[in-house]
Design a protein around this nucleic acid. Structure first.
Lengths: 145, 145
DNA sequence: CTTGACTCGATACTTAGGTATAGGGTTTAT
DNA sequence: ATAAACCCTATACCTAAGTATCGAGTCAAG
């Protein structure tokens, strides 16, 4: 059978058993089939889903964001235009993150370069670089004399 | 004076006052100067630091990771080769995140495309795409018959 | 037919990252 | 000179995301 019980699923996806049950309660994993003795039975692809959750979490998304991401999977229930809108929103969110990461990366690269040249660095190149490119953005600026 | 008190710093950087003090306790912000009456006094650039912390957090870094990132700023105390190594490590970490985000983005774009074509999608293009490109990575695979 | 590994639901505990409150001093506008 | 608005430390509380424990049922191997 290509069906896992919860222990196998947890092991294969690198999380704890409790975590799987927790994701189920949170609605990130669908209620699985049950065996006669009420054991959860997962199909093979469940492993991918759990790993996806973990990966996506590392990228700064919360479980509820991930839930909404996962809900884009089956479009059958929703109006298609709605799915598109949500997908687009997620895409720009992701693009924003990428841009910020690129900026940080460049700043670090510059730091490294400066460092290997043995130059004494006056001020922080990381923050400077981020400020230049606007990654460290104004949030509630207020004009002060 | 180009010196803020804690309320101004909090306001300008878009966080609560408690959060500033919390960052200080956690060692993310240096102990600031104090006024006669023991009020914290921050230089203008403190705003950038706090915003940096917030931004970086949104990208999936923990406060301790951010602390170590920030500690790269002043290289005077550390051996330069050490700073370089750590910068490089952070850079590859960031590159990894970027790659995963790119993958997610492409998957979402594909989903959107499929959707606008009105095609009925059998299975989840997000997970599929991620599996193809290895973003959903093996963690503790174990061979099962 | 029992022992060890697995599972169940329910409940409680933990850690990270804040957020709120209490009880007190300070500064400033009126 | 006094009320409003700010700051101090210390402590308690909160949410998200798990993690651990309890008492009980299940199942495969010896």
């Amino acid at each position: 059978m290509n069906c896992f019980r919860i222990g196998q699923l947890a092991f294969r996806s690198g999380v704890g058993i409790q975590t799987i049950r927790y994701y189920e309660r949170r609605g990130l994993l669908p209620n699985p089939l049950r065996s006669e003795s009420n054991y959860r039975l997962y199909p093979g692809n469940a492993v991918g889903v759990v790993r996806f959750i973990k990966q996506t979490q590392m990228l700064g998304f919360s479980l509820s964001e991930i839930k909404s991401l996962l809900s884009l999977r089956s479009m059958e229930n929703a109006r298609c235009s709605d799915v598109r809108k949500r997908a687009q929103a997620k895409i720009s969110q992701i693009e924003e993150k990428i841009k910020q990461l690129e900026t940080m990366k460049q700043a670090l690269a510059r730091l490294e370069e400066l460092c290997s040249k043995g130059g004494s660095v006056r001020e922080c190149p990381i923050l400077e670089a981020l400020e230049e490119t606007g990654a460290v953005r104004e949030s509630r600026e207020e004009v002060t004399a």
